[in-house]
Amino acid sequence: MTSTVDTVRELTYAEAIREALAQAMEADERVFLFGEDVGIYGGAFGVTGDLVHRFGTERVRDTPISELGIVGAAVGAALAGMRPIVEIQFSDFTAQAMDQIANQAAKIHFMLGGAAEVPMVLRAPGGSGTGAAAQHSQSLEAWFAHVPGLKVVMPATVADAKGLLLAAIDDPNPVVVLEHKLLYKQSGQVPADSGRVPLGEAAIRREGTDLTMVATGVMVSRALEAADQLAADGISATVVDPRTLKPLDSGSIVDAVVATGRALLVQEAPRSGGFMAEVAALIGDSPAFGYLRAPIRRLCGLDVPIPYAPQLERAAVPQVPDIVAEATRLVREW
């Protein structure tokens, strides 16, 4: 992906997603959006914004509160030649739609012996930090990553919010894009062109020598902030952002761990059965095992539902000081 400097603008994460949606709809008349309040309301988090005025109510289609119906209709529309993009207001609500996601969308291509494709994108915000409590704050990526047939994307930067979404829309498979609500208002540099960020390529956000932190979603920026503080204390950290969990760029993760000999895996989701357990196993199974100077450590959300009170909510998921402390222990004690 190449962009000249003058085509790079500062956008928010939400604006970057909206730009990707608009570019995809301009480029391909089969692409359309639907979901709850995506039209005149502009989306619960304002992501779709004014798109209904630009593309009309047929292609930016408001739906009833009907997650299972919406995702099922997306599957049917995809089978019949369209490229639907569904917005589910909170990723927690995908539980309402799980049959169509896990049993239908994910499996149809395989079950039918390759005779059909389901090119659809499901966008949904996850994550805590907004005081929305246990049914509006989960990090459910492990659910989706455990279902063969789904691709799972977690954009952690503003540029990736656009580039990964464009790649997801191009993909002939169902792709779950888990956005993070705390990132929607974050600003960053975004190329104006329609450059894709390929699914399955991790980003090395920072290179260091003492440990490798692998982080997803909002934990990428927390890991980077922690890395700045660690640097002041003489600890040099690599930060790897996998960007897509399915397919996973295992090579980049393994290489980064080989180079530093220590691995700290950071996720917002609860520890048990979380995706970083998969990353830990991947490292343990790989040639990186022989380079490890310390145990592989995970820093995860607690195994609790996300609580409401702000101090409780903060305590439930890793914060920057937690990452700094854990990384320091890992380097100093091993």
Binding site: E58, G69, A77, L79, A80, Q100, L112, A116
Partner: peptide, 29 residues
């Protein structure tokens, strides 16, 4: 798919919203 059969389904009612979506595609196309 060649004869328009979008598939049997192991989930009871699984095909119903899929049919609505195929209808939406037909309409939009």
């Amino acid at each position: 798919v060649a004869t328009g059969n979008l598939g049997a389904n192991g989930i009871v009612a699984g095909g119903v919203p899929i049919a609505a979506g195929a209808g939406l595609a037909v309409r939009m196309r």
